[in-house]
Design a protein around this nucleic acid. Structure first.
Length: 597
DNA sequence: GTAGGGTTAG
């Protein structure tokens, strides 16, 4: 009777496992039965259980099951590695790899893709280098997949030349290898290199696909190269590459990142299908471009269509409130988020940072400080950084010092915090304190990020540093700049030397100011750009007050529209005016949002 | 039986 029942029960257990593949509690119960009935001996049920646990993400339990297996085959080790990578547990991966070597288990060609990815997640370069040596020793370096993972690892570690060298020396580069390299370039902020390799790829006659297009549109968004991006998109269409919703969303985002909000809206309205990413892209884009009214209006529309916002949508909404100084509305959206009581919508650190920014920007520095103290989450550098930025804007030296102390303690290698503190001192004329901060930076080896601006012209991106003379057109650029400065001075422009935070003489201050990278970029745009077309300048840091005023005057003088994107947001200048957000009645709009829920 | 690529935030 027992013999008759045995195969049935085993089959039943297997079926049960399949049926409860996403229910962790059920899996545990079945595990107990498997052990009790002695079916675990052949490992097949345990294997199935392990795979299910990896999918569910219960890695602790998965490890327990794995450890109970008498002699797991290499496939099972790989399954566990897969689980650790998927669930972002790189440290556990490293320990498992060590154990594997200690036991003398030989890794196979499937092992290294997982382990290399784990080291990427771990972010420790020396570990990556020694793992690379293992890969070579075991003879897996010529496997495309392993090589691709290594290239991505080096790129994520900022080891650009190693990554490039390895990629170039790959004997066979298929489409996925190209796409992976281009994507990781964009993800690490090396979009100009991505563009370079896209051109190489085309020169090598490798046919690109929709994955390539998405990465390139994202690269063009970062670079502010609307024309190049649109050209690539048009080519994709002509070559009948499937432009799915991901491609369309990336295109939308590119337009918004290039300050082309009107065109983005037309694209958005014409889209055949829209998902939460499309809506969030628009809302975030409007917020970045200073059109808070449209951002919040879209948020309402989105809900009227019955779409559920996600955490990015709320980041856009909160930053829209922040840019427009809508303190009370921001507070209400934040509490709405809490009240929705959705596990996926619990405010994250970024949302708290947005709130601190909102309060701080409006001058409510103490309230922002209190908000941080009362937060349910542990404040990170992003949150303290938002408060320090606000202290710099409102020149609050006392609180600024307090916050900077926390930041310099936790993140001594980030130059911008030191710079912000030194700016606060400089604004108050405390040059001895400025010197102290600077010498501390030198002692810690912290470096300031050098400011640069870029402009696209003739299919190329032109970069400028402050006082740069390396550009072939330098002579003409400086002549143009002098000419403009003269003319706008007559129109009433006065250099705002308050934004040069060095203790130097006035004349020197002025010349240092007049050669800021964005001014050089604008002069370049005026020389080369087509009349009637906007000049799009991208800057890697925030733009200073003087360059802001300068741009206003230049837009009036030359009747050219200037769209300047800095680290945080856009500035649109047309006919000497800065375009402000449209007036909207936020109160009534907020009430309609409340009604949706 | 298992392995490499894409969109919204920072």
């Amino acid at each position: 009777m027992l013999a008759k029942q045995t195969p049935l029960t085993k089959q039943m257990l297997s079926e049960l496992l399949r049926a409860s593949s996403s229910k962790p509690k059920q899996l545990k119960k079945i595990h107990a039965v498997v052990i009790r009935t002695g079916f675990s001996e052949k490992n097949s049920l345990l294997t199935q259980l392990l795979e299910n646990l990896v999918l569910v993400g219960d890695m602790c339990y998965a490890r327990q099951v794995f450890d109970e297996m008498p002699k797991p085959r290499i496939f099972l080790w790989n399954t566990l590695f897969k689980g650790y990578v998927r669930n972002q547990l790189p440290f556990e991966s490293v320990l498992l790899y060590k154990k594997m070597r200690d036991l003398g288990v030989r890794p196979d060609e499937f092992t290294y893709p997982f382990v290399v990815k784990a080291i990427s997640q771990l972010g420790v370069l020396p570990c990556g280098v020694s793992l690379h040596a293992h890969v070579l020793k075991n003879g897996f370096e010529c496997l495309g997949i392993v090589a691709t993972e290594l290239v991505m690892m080096y790129m994520k570690f900022g080891e650009l030349s190693s990554a490039e060298f390895l990629f170039e020396s790959m004997q066979v580069k298929d489409l996925v290898a190209w796409n992976a390299f281009i994507a990781v370039c964009v993800q690490t902020g090396n979009s100009a290199i991505a563009l370079e390799y896209f051109n190489k790829m085309c020169a090598d006659a490798v046919q690109f696909d929709s994955f390539t297009v998405v990465s390139m549109l994202s690269a063009c968004g970062q670079l502010g190269s609307l024309d190049i991006g649109e050209e690539i998109y048009d080519r994709a269409r002509k070559e009948e590459i499937e432009c799915n919703i991901i491609v369309e969303n990336a295109r939308l985002d590119m337009h918004l990142k290039c300050g082309s909000t009107e065109a983005a809206r037309v694209l958005f309205d014409d889209m055949k299908q829209r998902n939460v990413v499309s809506w969030s892209t628009m809302i975030v884009g409007y917020a970045m471009n200073g059109d808070s009214g449209e951002a919040l209006a879209l948020f309402t529309m989105m809900q009227n269509e019955g779409l559920r916002p996600n955490y990015v949508t709320f980041l856009g909404v909160l930053s829209a409130c922040s840019h427009a100084g809508l303190v009370n509305e921001g507070k209400r959206y934040f509490s709405l988020m809490v009240r929705l009581n959705d596990k996926n919508l619990e405010p994250r650190k970024e949302h708290y940072a947005c709130m601190v920014d909102l309060l701080g920007r409006s001058g409510l520095l103490e309230e922002a400080y209190e908000f941080i103290k009362k937060m349910r989450v542990e404040p990170d550098t992003g949150i303290w950084g938002a408060l320090l930025g606000a202290c710099a804007v409102h020149r609050d030296m006392i609180l600024g010092q307090k916050v900077a102390d926390v930041l310099v303690e936790t993140a001594p290698d980030i130059g911008s915090y030191h710079v912000l503190l030194s700016n606060i001192y400089a604004a108050a004329g405390k040059w001895d304190c400025v010197d102290k901060v600077r010498s501390k930076m030198r002692k810690l080896g912290t470096k300031k990020v050098a400011a640069y601006s870029s402009v696209e012209f003739d299919g190329k991106i032109h970069f400028f540093n402050r006082g740069d003379i390396s550009h072939p057109q330098s002579k003409a650029i400086y002549e143009k700049l002098d000419e403009i400065l003269k003319k706008i001075r007559n129109m009433g422009y006065v250099p705002d030397t308050g934004s040069v935070f060095h203790d130097v003489e006035m004349e020197e201050k002025e010349s240092s100011l007049s050669h800021h990278s964005e001014k050089l970029a604008i002069a370049f745009g005026l020389i080369n750009g087509r009349a009637g077309h906007p000049i799009r300048v991208m800057k890697n840091l925030r733009t200073c007050d003087d360059c802001h005023v300068f741009s206003k005057f230049v837009s009036r003088l030359t009747s050219r529209e200037i769209i300047m994107r800095d680290k945080n947001r856009f500035h649109h200048f047309r006919n000497g005016d800065k375009e402000w957000s449209k007036f909207v009645n936020m109160n009534s709009m907020f009430m309609s949002v409340i009604r949706c829920y």
